[in-house]
């Protein structure tokens, strides 16, 4: 019999990920490794690893990786790409990393149209530190630092960072996707490939926001977490293409 899903060459072999059961990180890692393989850029890829749950993504992604300080991924990516424009650069970041501590770096690298791809994992909590409030935490959502639920009066509103940067002329492609089901996963991969292709074509900044389940910190089963993305999280953060400044095919 023939194996229908051979191991992606840009995913390290024989490693068990440290992610919790049902976590979305593993899926997004796999999609990235498949996409760089299909677009034939894996050998010249550098992935910037964040502080957060994906801090040791380098143990799983079989591409060159560099660590970044919390929130500074897009600044590191800017340095990489400015020094070696021929390389393919991904900045992999969580919501706290990209949209709280790294907001300035995110905004300005996007506005300059730096030619790399940011992958934003939005799970509406700080996962690695144990489930504190994130900039994307929903109103009334309970976290370990919003024990009675987030209130707009105290904490402001969920931050729509991808919608913000999508308005910038330097952004070639921005899309929000989810990974809570087979069809969603396929759409997420297509979005990643669109963003990656925009980088390959030198069109500027691209960003893919992924609504990603964090069952443990949401205190849900993996199935409930999927449903919560459909029923609640994606109502605040609707899926879809937020910016597409790629030249239209004639």
């Amino acid at each position: 019999m023939k194996l229908k899903n051979p191991w992606p060459i840009y995913f390290k072999k024989d490693v068990e990920t440290h992610y919790c059961p049902g976590c979305g990180h593993g899926i997004v890692h796999r999609l990235i490794s498949e996409a760089v393989e299909e677009l034939d850029v894996g050998k010249r890829t550098i992935c910037v690893n964040p502080a957060g749950c994906a801090v040791i993504a380098y143990n799983y992604l079989n591409v060159d990786c560099i660590e970044s300080a919390h929130g500074r991924g897009t600044a590191v990516a800017t340095g990489l790409k400015r020094a070696r424009p021929d390389l393919f650069v991904i900045s992999y970041q969580g919501d706290g990393d990209l949209a709280a501590i790294g907001t300035a770096e995110t905004i300005h690298s996007a506005n300059r149209g730096e030619c790399f791809t940011a992958v934003l994992i939005n799970n509406a909590v700080y996962g690695m530190t144990g489930g504190q409030m994130a900039p994307t935490t929903l109103l009334s959502q309970k976290t370990t630092t919003t024990p009675t639920g987030r209130t707009s009066g105290n904490d402001g509103y969920p931050l729509h960072i991808t919608d913000v940067v999508a308005t910038f002329k330097g952004v070639a492609y921005a899309e929000r996707v989810a990974v809570n089901g087979p069809a969603a996963v396929q759409r997420a991969k297509k979005a990643l490939k669109n963003a990656f292709q925009a980088q390959i074509d030198g069109l500027g900044y691209s960003i893919i926001e992924v609504l990603s389940p964090c069952p443990v910190n949401w205190k849900m089963s993996p199935i409930e977490a999927w449903k919560w993305i459909d029923d609640v999280l994606s109502k605040e953060f609707p899926l879809g293409v937020l910016a597409d400044r790629r030249p239209k095919a004639v």
């Binding site: 194996l3 899903n5 191991w7 992606p8 068990e16 992610y19 990180h25 593993g26 796999r30 089901g181």
Partner: peptide, 10 residues
């Protein structure tokens, strides 16, 4: 949907 690349289909 497997987050852990734990499934092979032949």
């Amino acid at each position: 949907v497997c987050p852990d690349l734990a499934i092979e289909v032949y």
